[in-house]
Design a protein around this nucleic acid. Sequence first.
DNA 1: CAAAATTATTAGCCAATCCTAAAATCAAAA
DNA 2: TTTTGATTTTAGGATTGGCTAATAATTTTG
Lengths: 160, 160
Amino acid sequence: MYDKFRTFSEYMKKESNSLTASMEDYLEMICRLSTKSGYVRLHELADALNVQPPSATKMVQKLADLNLINYEKYGVITLSDEGKSIGENLIKRHNTILELLRTLGIEENNLLEETEKIEHTVSTETLHCFLRFMDFLEQNNDIKEKLTQYMKSKDRLKVD
Amino acid sequence: MYDKFRTFSEYMKKESNSLTASMEDYLEMICRLSTKSGYVRLHELADALNVQPPSATKMVQKLADLNLINYEKYGVITLSDEGKSIGENLIKRHNTILELLRTLGIEENNLLEETEKIEHTVSTETLHCFLRFMDFLEQNNDIKEKLTQYMKSKDRLKVD
DNA sequence: CAAAATTATTAGCCAATCCTAAAATCAAAA
DNA sequence: TTTTGATTTTAGGATTGGCTAATAATTTTG
């Protein structure tokens, strides 16, 4: 009857070719931080993700093994071509989710956290649907406006 | 600059009072499976979640420690009042996400998996926004119809 | 250039959740 | 009632990604 269900852990176990949620976080952040100067230092990365340096070291070594970044001990972190390409897509995905949540009225205070949690869980197909939904609103600005107004007003039909 | 970011693992670490994603999965499923007879057997639970029995044993023991279920070795699993209440809310949350994703045009094939991944990540506030969005569509059936048509059509504005 | 300060690594630990293999318990049938 | 078969538990292992404490390398400063 319920044979199609899986636990969260099992869904989140990535296939061999793809990245774990944390790997995605690191790569995404490396991508953001390296736009200015072209490289990142380990401690900047650790700071930005609010982890301790040893955690960053470990992950950076993993990403280097996967050839997504270039890194040698005590050195500087730069993105490989593949890493850059993936990282840019991760950032796009992040921005898409963020925009969607904003459209649906999630408060600015919670936007980042909610985005960061959700982004790792959505498939490409789902992401496309989200984009398509926002296209729809772009093409129907009256509806977008009406929706925005509605989401702002406080009273609700159902409470939970 | 990016000091508000966290890694996925850190976001998903629950505060002491709340449940991990996997605990939620188990509790939710126990709730579903026990509606008929009022109880669940361990192997039913393991089957439904596609895990091996030892994994289910361990988790069931944890949930019993938290007084969310009643369980004694080799016995039958029943929900405590608190477990039932939480479980029912988890199912509501599940259904809300599922309905939202369906509205946004996610294919039936992917609906369950996408729902199960996302459900653990959204806050109560976000959930309320989702509900409110669907209220909006209920109250504006013309818009809902137009959106559905739009999501069905294949061509897209942007591709990624 | 040597000492001090900063940055990064290693080593080792923890928690969560899955797994397999083997042992224990329970229930049903001969 | 004893045997068999199904169910469940225990024991032990793997992976992931955090952490701290101690060490090492690098950079800055006096």
